[in-house]
Amino acid sequence: MLAVAGLSVAFPAGTAVRGVSFTLAAGERLGIAGESGSGKSLLALSILGMAPPAARVQGSIRLGGAEVVGAGEPALRALRGRVAAMVFQEPLSALNPLIRIGEAIAEPLRLRRGLTARAARDRAVALLGEVGLPDPAAKARQYPHELSGGQRQRALIALALAQDPQLLIADEPTTALDAAVAARILGLLAELSARRGMALVLISHDLGAIARVTGRLLVMYGGDVVEDGPTAAVLADPRHPYTRGLIAARPRLDAARPPGTPLPAIPGAVPPLPALSAGCRFADRCALARPGCAVPPPPVAVAPGRVAACWAVAP
């Protein structure tokens, strides 16, 4: 239902997404992992044709049978919310502070699905119930600031579900939440995806979250997909040096680490756009870097259903 092919998103300062390709089947659950600046949020916005105006988008994104790249505003609006919907990172700022929760959800139902005001209100309450908000009728009458962080994120998910999308893109949906609430939101996303047969793209820097919810994982670095494969297999046996670093850098309670020693980390940070190299973008921070890394590595099949883009990884 989603096919991204050779997608590049370039700004005057540099290329933020470089030649990304992947496909997503109906009902499939995909995780996209990477640090800040890896291009994962921009990739997500591009799927809905919502990259910033300054961005030049090239390649192809086929969403529910329609081409997104180069599509006009009316064609994009037909896709947004209806074929693919999005849940954003910060639920407080992602909800309009002046609009009651119920009205926020009823609005697209009236405008886009043609429901009457009454039917839309009832449906909004039902959706709030579906995402597990207690006393949904009362919550519908409240403003976003009157809800807790977890409740807001549930309300935002209910809003995304309003038009029964075939794909839900959740961009760091749990970053702003505490751990226990985050775990319940992740459980809710997985459950909604299964119950509705709705595909899910979960964007996160939290590999644990991705492992819980998704069957397949894309690892992004500096705008490149560096590794792609079944989530469990990639996490158990990472092939790309960046994926390995990312897994090693997870804070763990069970690891035997003497008190006071720093957490393992990948040295450095993702460079700003103009500083990204033309070759392998991870080479500056990679222990395995060698002269050949000045040429961008092609994706190579490293195992059945698994791909990595690294010169140091021999199949």
Binding site: L48, M50, L76, R77, A78, L79, R80, G81, R82, A85, M86, F88, S93, A94, L95, N96, P97, E107, P108, L111, R112, L156, L159, A160, A162, Q163
Partner: peptide
Amino acid sequence: FVRTATAQGL
């Protein structure tokens, strides 16, 4: 929230 509204196809 403007991005949210845009993503709803409003």
